[in-house]
Design a protein around this nucleic acid. Structure first.
Lengths: 185, 185
DNA sequence: ATGAACCTTGTACAGTCGTACACATGAGTG
DNA sequence: CACTCATGTGTACGACTGTACAAGGTTCAT
């Protein structure tokens, strides 16, 4: 598998570990509170490794969020691909909104951190674009393109409101909203 | 109007100016890049004024985002209150999504910065809660509570996708999505 | 064994940060 | 006038930042 093990690499996947640690630090302290030193400590590597493996903070953040986006994207694609009938697709969507995605606080925080960067810097917007394109493609396995876009937006909004609201989200309202969006198709 | 003009205030609304400047700095550099010095420079006040008017960075950010949230909230409420018939409400919603809200890049960036803070810190989640509660209340002038929630979420998602997507949003898709959500009411 | 090429690390530097605080300055009161 | 006190400000401090880089290790081909 992962045994390219290039030339004399003493710690072959140190780079990966740094990226993973970077996401942990971001989830805990936000992009604002993320520093080379904190990430190095979290990854268990010396500070010098930071500048060796990454040209700078920007590269580190870009790679970390790229990994995050594709991993969330993968999960979504898998869930939608598993659905075989329209009814299963509907159920998968509702489950995705009410449970899985952002079930962990971590994913919620990381998503928003990424959105925030994407809102300002084009380099990160490329990541969110790719993410959204994959989501739409996954939805188009089951729905027409226009409906796919609507569903994608609805998921986004419901998920955010679920995360940012104090009172819990009513699953029946979620199901009803999905049905209304799908119903018109 | 604003002439409380307490005791010998030499610069009566300096506090307001600092808050406004803070939002500008955040919009331009992000919360991560916002510092007392940058805000002071943007507001045209000496650094010492920062610690004089605000107990610390947290208080400054909280007040700045509180002001931002209520101002966006005000605009939304006004737009919904202006609608007299269901048809007008529908049109107002579509206009809100495709034009007004987040028309300026500034509002988009600030919203996401706030969401990001809210995702991590309860103090900021209070702001987003109040914001969402007001939005729902404004929508309930025209729609039943469940529909209001759905519409609110849909607006959120469509707005975000519009902002973070490269290809432009099709207004007809937006209108169709709104109609589907409203249609089931 | 020799050397080249890469991997790894500790430390140093210049800069920015939040915050504190002693001092100046003005307005209001008597 | 002088007295009081909130308002306003310049500067200094320690902590932390990103980044550079010289020095030391390890691996591999020769």
């Amino acid at each position: 598998m992962t045994q390219e093990r290039a030339r004399g690499r003493r710690d072959p996947d140190r780079r990966e570990r740094i990226i993973a640690a970077c996401l942990d630090v971001i989830a805990g302290s936000g992009v604002a509170g993320t520093s080379h030193r904190k990430v190095a400590a979290a990854a268990g590597v010396p500070l010098g490794s930071m500048t060796y493996y990454f040209s700078g903070m920007d590269e580190l953040l870009r790679e970390a969020f790229a990994r995050f986006a594709t991993s969330v994207s993968d999960e979504f694609e898998r869930a939608m691909a598993a659905a075989r009938t329209p009814a299963e697709a509907r159920a998968a969507l509702i489950a995705l909104i009410t449970d899985t995605v952002f079930d962990s606080h971590r994913d919620l925080v990381l998503s928003h951190e990424l959105y925030t960067l994407a809102a300002r810097e084009p380099a990160f917007r490329d990541l969110t674009n790719a993410w959204m394109a994959r989501s739409r493609a996954a939805l188009e396995r089951h729905f027409d393109p226009a409906t796919a876009r609507m569903v994608d937006a609805l998921i986004e909004g419901l998920t955010i409101h679920r995360a940012l609201d104090t009172e819990p989200q009513d699953p029946r309202t979620v199901a009803a909203a999905v049905d209304r969006i799908l119903g018109g198709a």
